[in-house]
């Protein structure tokens, strides 16, 4: 998973967030992306967190990806994770219609309510296209929703890994095109903060 732990250096740190109904495959999508694996996962408890280093357009990126629980009882928790996210991935299950309709009724509203970053990039992802025969939401509907809501759109399958990489890549590319996002969450800002208080941090390291 953290194959790139040696990579200390990176240009930007990006915070991404996965949201959507329970059982749509958020965790599977993340697992598929970070470790090329697919397995049956039990429902996420609260929040999960994964790190992945990628290089996009010659930029070294460190992705901090927060995977939230879709279950109703944890909904109260997820609100605090929208803060500072540069990219939000809304996931639905193409074989379960209600997970799609809940997007506009619940999840899009949550974003409006809790996201602190007006420029943050949103992405709509329809998962489980490997079950084409059970499809309950057409691609056209997905595209329409995405257009109406102003977000990126892709259909993918965490199981077959179709479009999984692309999901994240498109989102990242879009973030990289948005200067305000990079200025806010990038590591450059963080370094400045440490420069403001260098005696402290250097001293703590020297005395231990």
């Amino acid at each position: 998973m953290e194959a790139s732990s040696s990579q200390q250096d990176f240009d930007y740190l990006l915070k991404l967030l996965l949201i959507g109904d329970s059982g749509v495959g958020k965790s599977s999508l993340l697992l598929s992306f970070t470790s090329d694996a697919f397995e049956d996962l039990s429902p996420t408890i609260g929040v999960d967190f994964k790190i992945k280093h990628v290089t996009v357009n010659g930029k070294k990126l460190k992705l901090a990806i927060w995977d939230t629980a879709g279950q109703e009882r944890f909904r109260t928790l997820t609100s605090s994770y929208y803060r500072g996210a540069q990219g939000i991935i809304m996931v639905y299950d193409v074989t379960r219609r209600e997970t799609f309709t809940n997007l506009s009724e619940i999840w899009a509203r949550e974003i409006d309510l809790y996201s602190t970053n007006p420029d943050c990039i949103k992405m709509l992802v329809g998962n489980k296209v490997d079950k084409e025969s059970d499809r309950a939401v057409s691609k056209k509907e997905g595209i329409d929703f995405a257009r109406q809501y102003g977000c990126l759109f892709l259909e993918c399958s965490a199981k077959t890994r179709v479009n999984v990489e692309q999901c994240f890549e498109e989102l990242i590319l879009k973030i990289l095109e948005t200067p305000s996002l990079l200025a806010e969450g990038s590591i450059g800002v963080k370094r400045n903060i440490f420069k403001q208080a260098p005696p402290e941090s250097s001293a703590t390291s020297s005395c231990c």
Partner: peptide, 21 residues
């Protein structure tokens, strides 16, 4: 499976946003 998420939550962001939740 939930440990890492909690660890990171505690360590990464200002607590005040999470305590209430």
């Amino acid at each position: 499976v939930a440990w890492l998420g909690l660890e990171e939550t505690a360590g990464s962001s200002p607590a005040k946003h999470h305590v209430g939740a």
